[in-house]
């Protein structure tokens, strides 16, 4: 199929050859699709994102990306690497890893510079991302002086400056205040409307309904337990509870206290 961006067949990965991180992963991601990978901590979501971005390669199984087998041989060719990196962008979970340059401006233009974009394109892309993410005032700042939310926005800008067709987010809202979460979710929704393929790993179920059409649920055994439309997966309370994604907690309303599992899809009733 022409619109197939990623196809993973029986992918397995382990750290140091003995700590399994992914088992029997099969998935297909199509162009323009918005996918969420959900699962509790340590279920292999980030590892899978690194595989999709061609940063690590599976021990077994096959990854087809943009019609080519994604492996070390393919990416060791500079032309292939250039093409792949200009089409796939990964926003890392830890923004401190992604922001390694002495200033915000240099971090944002790092990708376009490495990919050989000309000065005019770089200047245009810089102006665009500064406007989209409203971070023009941070341009000359040193990355370590920024707040976590600002760092996350700059990290997104540094990927967006490449203008990739496929954007991969690793826990984009983890540790952020509600307003910054809203900004980032709004940004992902806008990117979705522009037809970008978006793959997001998260355990924040409140944002999944907005940012994804298809959801893959990862279990503690590093396998995909279930996949399907977002609303269908989010409705399955028992499955989510079994996988540590929701929990029953007691809380107070005016006059009384009760306990029930909280789900993003349900309305809160007394």
């Amino acid at each position: 199929m022409n619109d197939r961006i990623f196809k993973l067949t029986d992918v397995q990965y382990s750290y140091l050859g003995k700590y399994p991180a992914l088992r029997d992963i099969n998935m297909t991601i199509r162009k323009g699709e918005q996918v969420a990978l959900i699962g509790s901590n340590g279920t292999g979501k980030s590892t899978l994102l690194h595989i999709l971005d061609g940063l690590i390669f599976p021990d077994r199984g096959e990854v087809i990306a943009l019609g080519q087998t994604l492996n070390e041989d393919y990416l060791s060719d500079e032309k292939n690497a250039h093409l792949f990196r200009s089409k796939v962008g990964l926003v890392f979970q830890n923004a401190d890893i992604q922001l390694f340059c002495p200033s915000v401006k240099e971090d944002i233009v790092f990708g376009p510079l490495q990919l050989g974009f000309n000065d005019k394109i770089i200047a245009d892309r810089l102006a665009q991302v500064l406007e989209i993410l409203e971070i023009g005032h941070l341009l000359e700042r040193i990355p370590h002086q920024l707040s976590i939310g600002e760092k996350r926005k700059v990290a997104i800008a540094s990927v967006l400056a490449i203008d990739p067709e496929i954007i991969i987010f690793d826990e984009p809202t983890a540790g952020l205040d509600p307003l910054t979460v809203r900004h980032i979710v709004d940004f992902i929704v806008k990117a979705k409307q522009k037809g970008k393929t978006i793959i997001t790993a998260t355990h924040d179920l409140h944002i999944v309904g907005e940012i994804a059409d298809t959801v893959y649920l990862f279990g503690k055994d590093k396998r995909i337990i279930k996949q399907g439309p977002a609303e269908k997966i989010l409705e399955d309370k028992i499955l989510l509870q079994e996988n540590n994604l929701i929990h029953i907690h007691g809380h107070s309303h005016t006059g009384f206290t009760h306990a029930h599992p909280h789900l993003p899809t349900e309305k809160h009733s007394n």
Partner: peptide, 19 residues
């Protein structure tokens, strides 16, 4: 290791180009 991955992810191929 992680920073190197972040550099690779944005197109670094061994000879950096700086602003």
């Amino acid at each position: 290791e992680d920073v190197y991955k972040a550099m690779l992810s944005r197109g670094y191929s061994g000879e950096p180009r700086l602003l």
